[in-house]
Design a protein around this nucleic acid. Structure first.
Lengths: 214, 214
DNA sequence: AAATAATAGAGAAATTTTTCACAATATTTA
DNA sequence: TAAATATTGTGAAAAATTTCTCTATTATTT
């Protein structure tokens, strides 16, 4: 599908945004759009949007624009949103539970299959059809079930060790919420959500703005 | 403090990571480091680290390296972590509660002062000393209390309207967890945590890896 | 004390990313 | 039907970011 094997991460980060806005257009019955219109919605430049899309081939028509449904589909295929994914969450504390309850993934076919925790008070409870299981049963579980994505919501002190266990059991995609960088083999992809780093950046810009407005 | 007024966002995003690793070195009693060592820890190139730090002035000593405690302090000052910040959370659902309970901010002085929600079952409860209050009392609350940062954890359907209300009441920094881009005046800084976009990117790289390993 | 090794700082080069500019093509209007 | 308008795709230019290279400086070793 790709024209080019190596697509810049910056491009990949923008695709989900295009996908979301195309979904919104779709919902309100708009079935034609343009890089100009997408630019107004997303804040990215029209030229950048065209360049981004052209990494994957020409989805538009010169002189006309883009078909909303088609373009959304194509971006979905590029991202892999046309497939199903099974997820487990390791660490059923606040963040783990919040992820399990999160409904913002509805646009695609992700299923949280189970959560794992050491806390006996949590084991046995269910969140939206997903059972919270004993962490000790994690390896056995992974031997039986094919899981695509593991979410790490444990304390940072055990995150590395949990990640290694997951990788030993065949996991190749990790969504890491622990505020620590995981040292992983090359064939494991880790997507970090480092909330403290996000808050620290926010803090920088908040202070910068305050200084400038004085 | 800054040599240069306009620092690239990419640099700012790396600073929290330097700060975290310097904290770790500090904790284990290491008080001297080098761009080389920081490179090994963070994965950024030594040269990039030196360039980054030089945006703000020379914190190291040629031939010697960097003083861990001093450098950490300086980065902390750049980010503004030497000050106190009061936070409110709007939307006390799963994510709002998770943020209120999150202890990963311990490195700095953030205080969650209150949460706001419409749900009568939640109003009156407390999370770590922060009371969940009625959303209807938000404006009055903000008139009385000085709040630095507002966290939006509402459904996306009301996120824009909530943001506008916050801005009317003087809020200038928003940490947005709703999967929607907020249209805000220039003097309001919005830091987005778009979990679905993060998961979609992860999905792309997961599929890419699978293809390549075949 | 001199030589060696390690390291930051900084300008320059290389690379990457974004924007520009325009030809090609489709639609709409006169 | 012809002219005007809108829009993509794309190569080139511009801008931004990262890496390279070297000098100056410090600490360590001989």
């Amino acid at each position: 599908m790709e024209k080019n094997d190596r697509i810049s991460p910056a491009v990949i980060r923008r695709l989900p945004k295009y996908y979301r806005y195309l979904g919104e257009l779709n919902k309100v019955g708009v079935n034609k759009t343009s890089s100009r219109e997408l630019s107004d919605m997303t804040g990215f430049s029209a030229s950048q949007i065209r360049q981004d899309l052209n990494n994957f081939g020409g989805f538009g028509q010169q002189g006309f624009g883009y078909d909303v449904g088609n373009l959304r589909n194509e971006i979905g295929k590029i991202l892999g949103l046309d497939k199903k994914y099974k997820i487990i969450i390791v660490g059923a504390g606040n963040i783990g539970q919040a992820i399990a309850n999160y409904t913002g993934f509805y646009e695609a076919d992700y299923e949280v299959v189970a959560l794992f925790d050491k806390n006996p008070k949590l084991i046995g409870l269910s969140i939206r059809n997903a059972l919270i299981m004993d962490s000790d049963d994690l390896e056995e579980f992974l031997k039986k079930e094919h899981i695509d994505i593991a979410v790490i919501c444990t304390p940072k002190s055990v995150s590395q060790q949990v990640a290694e266990q997951l990788v030993r059991c065949g996991i190749r995609a990790i969504w890491n919420f622990a505020p620590k960088d995981l040292k992983m083999p090359e064939d494991v992809y880790v997507e970090n959500v480092h909330l403290n780093e996000s808050l620290f950046s926010l803090t920088y810009y908040y202070n910068k703005m305050k200084k400038e407005s004085k």
